[in-house]
Structure formats: C-alpha cells, structure tokens
Design a protein around this nucleic acid. Sequence first.
RNA 1: GUCCCGGUAGCUCAGCGGAGAGAGCGCCUGGCUACGAACCAGGAGGCCGCAGGUUCGAAUCCUGCCCGGGACACCA
Length: 575
Amino acid sequence: MHAAEQALVPRLEAAVVAAFGAEYGGWDPQLRAATRPEFGHFQTNLPLRLAKSTALPAPRVAERLLAQLRVDDLCLPPALGGQGFINLTLRPEFLAAQVNALLSDDLLGVRPAAPSQRIVVDFSSPNVAKQMHVGHLRSTIIGDTLARVLSFVGHDVVRRNHVGDWGTQFGMLIEQLLDEGGDDGDLDLPALDALYRRARTRFDGDPAFADRARARVVALQAGDGQTVGVWRRMVAVSLAGFDAMYARLGVRLTRADVAGESSYHDDLPRVVADLTEAGLLTRSEGALCAFLPGFTNRDGAPLPLIVRKADGGFGYDATDLAAIRHRIDTLGADRLVYVVDVRQSLHFDQVFALASAAGWLPTRVAAQHVGFGMVLGEDGKPFKTRSGDTVSLASLLDAAEAKAAALLDERGSTLTGPARSATARAIGVGAVKYADLAGGIGRDYVFALDRLVALAGNTGPYLQYAHARLASLLDRSGGVPGRVTMLDHAAEQRLALLLTGFPGAVESVAATLEPHRLCGYLYQVATALSVFYEECPVLRASGDVRASRLALCLAARRVLATGLDLLGITALERM
RNA sequence: GUCCCGGUAGCUCAGCGGAGAGAGCGCCUGGCUACGAACCAGGAGGCCGCAGGUUCGAAUCCUGCCCGGGACACCA
C-alpha cells in the first residue's frame, strides 16, 4: 500500500465511525489515487457507498464525514467532489517526509511480508539437448522477475529449474549418437541440437530405429552403464549451454537451482504405490490413471491423468506429482508457483487436483500456475524463422543487440569500445525482457523488434534512459544530496507522490504475480521525470531549492534502479 | 462438444464497480544558443464485439450470442 494511504485509511475509518456509529466500523474507504490532477492526490467514494445504508444523500454523508475527519496534519482541507467523492491533497511537508523516509530505507518503503513464506518458483525449464528458443523466453524472464519481487518483499524464494532431462527423446538421441559413432566428448549444445533434429527425422521415418530408440529409453531408465554415461554427458553439455544463456540474460539461475525431471525418477514407483493405496488409480487401456471429478475429454468421457503409461514408463504427470510432494515435504514450501505456458493449465489443474486428493497438497499451501501466452511473429502466428524453424534465443538476442547498437549510433552516443558494446547488450536484452513483462502475461504478444527496441514510449530502453539521465545529473551536481525540504511546484509534487507509490506497485506484483504493474508504474515515474525536468531546473537552481530537488532526483534514481533490478534489467549509468 | 483466454482510438496495449474511458506508436500544431529534445505543451481520433440483466452507478459483475486463439489419453 502507498505509504500515505497507510496513514490516511485509519483516519477515514475513524471518521466513518464518529459520524455514523460503531456499527460502521471496518468500512474500507477504498482510497484511490485521484483520477485527475484537480482532484488532489487521493479520492474516496465513501459518501456514495454510505448513502444507501445511512439513507442520506451522498452530499449529506460527505458533510458529516468531513465534520469528523481529522487529517489536518497530513492534508490540506479536504474537498467535496461534485459527484460524492472526498478529495484529499497531501501537505507538501508530509509528502517530503515520505520521500525522505524512502531515501533512508533499503526497501524503499516496502514492508516485509508477514508471515514470510517459503515460495518455490518453477521456471525456465528448458529441454536438454535443445538450444533455448523463444518458447523458453517468457518462462525464464517472467519467472526470474517474480522470484526477485517475491524475495524483495521478504519471502524465502526457492528457484527450481525443472529441466527436461528425462523424456523419451533421450532414447532416440543416444541411439542416433551411437549409430553415427560420434564422440560425445566433442559435443556442444548447437551440435546436440543438430543431433536431435537428425534423430527426430529418423525416428519419424524409420520404424526399426524408433523401436531401438524406445528400447534405449528402457535401458536408460534401467541404469545401463553405457547409456547412462552418454546421457550424463549430454546433460552436462546442455547445462553449460543454459548457464551461458542465463548469464547473457542476467537471469539468476544456477546449477543449485536445477532439479531436472530425472531427479524424481527414483521416487516415481512410490508415487504410484501411494496413489494406488489411496485408491485413486484405475487401470485404463493399460495405463494407470486417475479419473478426477470435473475433468472430461472431447467426447464427454472422464479425462485421465496418466500416472504411469501403458509401457510402464512415466510422463510429466508423474514427475510433477513427485515434485509437488518433494517441494512441500522436503523443501518446506508454503506456496508453489509455476511459470509455464498457459496451454498447460489443464495439466496443472489435474495435477493440483490429484495432489490435493492424495493429501500431498494441503489447503494451507497455495499452488498457482502463472500461465503466459505465446510469442507471435508480426504475422500474428507463432514466432518462427522464414524457413519455419523455431527461433533460437541467441539469434533473437543478437538481433535485438544489433538494433540497440545501431540506435546508439543514430542518437550520437559518446560511448565507444567495450563500454559501447556492453551498453548495446544491456539495451537489447533489456528491451526484449521489458516487452515480455510489460503486457498482461496471460495474453500472447507480438514480437516486433522495431517497437521493442524503440527508445521512446513504454519500452525498456526508455526506462534505462530515464535512469541514465538521472545518474548523469546527479554526477554533475558534485555533492551528496541531502533531504527533500520543499515541494512547491506541481511537477515536484507529482513526482514525489509517484515515488512514494513504489511499495504499493511492488506489493501488487507480489500479490497478483503480474509484473506489468511494476512496468506501468516505472513508466509513469519516467514520464513524470520528463515533466519535472521541463519545469523545474535542478543544477541551475540554487540554495535550498537545488538541494531539495537533488534529493528528489536521488529518490527517483533509487526507485528506478531498484524497479529495473526487480525486472532483471540493467540500470545504465550512461547511454 | 466441453472448458480456458482474448475482443477498448488506425496499430500495440493499460484500465476490470465509481468523477468528460487512458498511454505509446502513427497523424496535425507549437517549442531545443540542451541540468541528456530518447523530451515537453496542445489537437484530431472510441455505439469499450452484440443483446439482455443486476446496481444509485457497468468497459468493469451475471446470462445468452457472435468473432479470434488455445486446451481436451500415454510428447512435455
């Protein structure tokens, strides 16, 4: 909640009780940011909502509330809006105090979550032996941001990278490698990716090979020495490739966060045994299935969740069930967050339902699937290369960085050499990440490079620019800013009010798992800064005005830097 | 067929019970002897998919329908 709201809400609640009696205790004032500047800073619609139960017209309600409202220390005299709103304008000195409080607080006003939860965030989860591609972009970026935000507000976040290291594809991969007589010591991730494509083609066209591939899966899962050895090296090569990509993206995922599907393998027979004992499994068409109430297939028949396949193998249903149990019982999770493609929502509905039925997912533990939409090309179809292949993440970032470098030149950036290329990388990656985070995550978005890397409008580069400009200004000031002591100008007040809204913005992301709220907030701060610069000279001012404005700039810089960091975007000093 | 998402300015999207529905891009008019104009000030541009309903009040909640996307048994 906005720091000022914390102070105002109790006053409003008290006024309601004083005016209309104790039975009106607990009415939420629904204090909101004013919808228009002339309405001040905050508004409440209490008179409108109280009109009915008090049987008084809204203006009469408002009069009685105003007579009881004691906010003189915080606000200018409250005003009655024509439609039945009460409008509140903070006193400049109160606003200044709020900004100063933010300046002396590492959390910038965010109050640590109480109680702090242990939250497991499952994200990224690429497949071994495949280069990361657009399909992994959103999970990786959104998951990293959510992990950062949840951690910032005081939760104990455990990151889990549920890499696909145990699927049936390994049969054909290993079989293909052995067939080709290749040396797995020479493999890197692109070579593995190419091997995968050759194996896939052969698997689809050569039944004999397909049979051998399936047998190879059995050998792998049975622990055959040679097979497992090849598999291990494939995994190692892949993880090294992923690490490089995470470093490039600035995503905080390490080997310690990797808990691949294979890590649950030994537990799967026990999952089956326990579910069987609980009477939750039925054999159907050779597979062990759970038929849960409320799930039907396209024919209206009961829809199974397949815990063990007819061939005795396990799919992701079983793995995810084992993972839930592990995360709650062993990791001590209070909450589970899955940042996975929205198309898997039915899967998660089923898995959560079965885990609940089995008693593995108690009601005190919230399990949430944060389903994100697809990345589309400019033709509105799933993003592909001209030849129809999936777009590798590396090539996509290459293009974004090249675009950023070109724009630096175009803008006459004075940066040269390594600083220039590092900045271009930060802008390119930041632009891609911001585009991924700035819209509602549930919907698809169109990957239009020209728009993402545009340095104007609601983009990552624009926020980076706003930060760089502040950094530059503060450097030139040549001193250590003190405190905000005056906020006489409307542009100063507007900026100060926005800055004190930082905790509310971050807390709303933590509550809703919707990062675009933070993006929108930071964008508002950046635009308010532009107006502020236009109307309020800082370095050219003198004395207390200059000092106060510098402090305001410092607060803005900290808000932008912290906000960008939560989004996983580099806050640049120069551009 | 069932279920889940979407449908808001020309385009990309916010807003999801309360005051003339907002932003960016694009378009038009002004503004740089620069604390970084990657900007600012202003303007044009909307039956908020359609129809009912609930409410003092609906883009927002409910119902039905239309359009688009997605999911729906052994890939993950």
